[in-house]
Design a protein around this nucleic acid. Structure first.
Lengths: 221, 221
DNA sequence: CACTACGATTTTAGATCCAATATGCCGTAG
DNA sequence: CTACGGCATATTGGATCTAAAATCGTAGTG
């Protein structure tokens, strides 16, 4: 949930969020007010408001009287985040599989899966990553539970702070794609329990693949 | 006079949060800055910071250029909140049932269940309600997932905004108590799957009981 | 040469001030 | 009697300014 765009605070909020998620403000960086207010052409007040809002969402951490820092998401944090995503994505899949009006959603998901196949075939990792995020977002939005959507998207955002993504793991995109197909099939068939089970397994497998990959990388370096 | 050892914003935050959750600031109320800053003996700045923080957590809603209002939690909101709580409490129960060090937790939970039996026997609804919150909080804290704890406690807080609680439903406390005992037994026995299943069913039953009760009340009025 | 104490600088936290916007009331016209 | 429009008021959103806390560099001492 973002602050209203009509206010300057809202403007500073979205700019800052973008800067953090894009990595322009690197994890560990000390975010100070004055350079930002100069960059945005604003005074300190709306920038501070944006900083406190982002702190509440986990995109910044605050040390009293020292300021705001971009958090460093370590493997333990990733474990926490994936553990939450597992159940959140699971309940979202369960819900949409029970929707009488899920026809249009299934169409959009099928189309996204097709695009994902093309991206995997072309070895376009970054493109696949974007499509993957959109796939999960479609399901979250369609779940009709605004709070669920908000919390899950926040977790996805925090995961992006740890620059590592499971799409980087060799062979993972192809496997994830097959799991996406299974999930869509369960949703289309109207099988809530199955959809939840598959969605949870999908997230769990992504988490495990990434974790194993990072541990290999850690030993290699 | 002793200055607050933390920040004044933090002071205003906890005071305000308390005022909202206790119902002193009723749902629908327009929360304005100046009366609060006078009541707390602070200037506007820390009060505004507290308001924006509470807005991010769902304890206030903001209309641009109009201000902050205490949200009215309707039955649809309660459905959303309980749906989330179901999976959050479920994963927490699953985690603690897999902990090798769950002995102390089981002791605390057993003691809480005993107190709950006393409260139910004495027909002390408010006392039971507090013990119920503490029961679920113990499990969340012990889960070791800080983000899970934070999100789940936020949902519990938002549920408290809807003044209705399942503890008010005739017969529900006794039933919930029995479910608590089952959950503790599954945790003590080290059965993660069973613990998750029972915790989810427990939340679902509370939600259903409350929803049916409210629909009866709605018709009666 | 290392360590500590002190002071200058930076930066946050808070207070106060100002402008822009929404609301509510009242009078007037239809 | 109702609907519309403008004026007065209240309240937010934002800017500026001050004070306090932390950091960093430097100099002096053991």
């Amino acid at each position: 949930m973002s602050l209203p765009r009509s206010t300057l605070s809202g403007l500073a909020y979205s700019q800052l969020r973008q800067a953090i998620l894009s990595g322009r403000l690197a994890p560990g960086a000390h975010v100070t007010v004055r350079p930002l207010s100069e960059e945005f052409g604003l005074s300190a007040t709306p920038v501070k408001a944006a900083l406190t809002a982002l702190e509440r969402e986990g995109f910044l951490v605050q040390h009293p009287h020292r300021g705001f820092f971009v958090p460093e998401v370590d493997r333990e944090d990733m474990r926490e985040l994936y553990e939450l995503r597992e159940v959140l994505d699971g309940i979202a899949a369960r819900r949409v599989a029970a929707l009488p009006t899920r026809e249009a959603l299934v169409g959009r998901l099928t189309s996204l899966v097709t695009d994902q196949q093309a991206a995997v075939a072309a070895n376009d990792l970054s493109g696949y990553g974007d499509l993957d995020v959109r796939f999960h977002q479609e399901i979250l939005v369609a779940s009709g539970n605004g709070r669920l959507q908000q919390v899950a998207e926040n977790m996805i955002g925090q995961l992006r702070l740890g620059r590592a993504t499971s799409a980087r793991v060799p062979g993972r995109p192809a496997a994830a794609l097959a799991e996406h197909e299974e999930i869509v099939a369960a949703i289309a068939a109207g099988q809530p329990q199955q959809a939840e089970r598959l969605a949870r397994r999908h997230v769990r497998k992504s988490a495990n693949a990434l974790d194993r990959y990072l541990s290999r990388q850690g030993r290699a370096s």
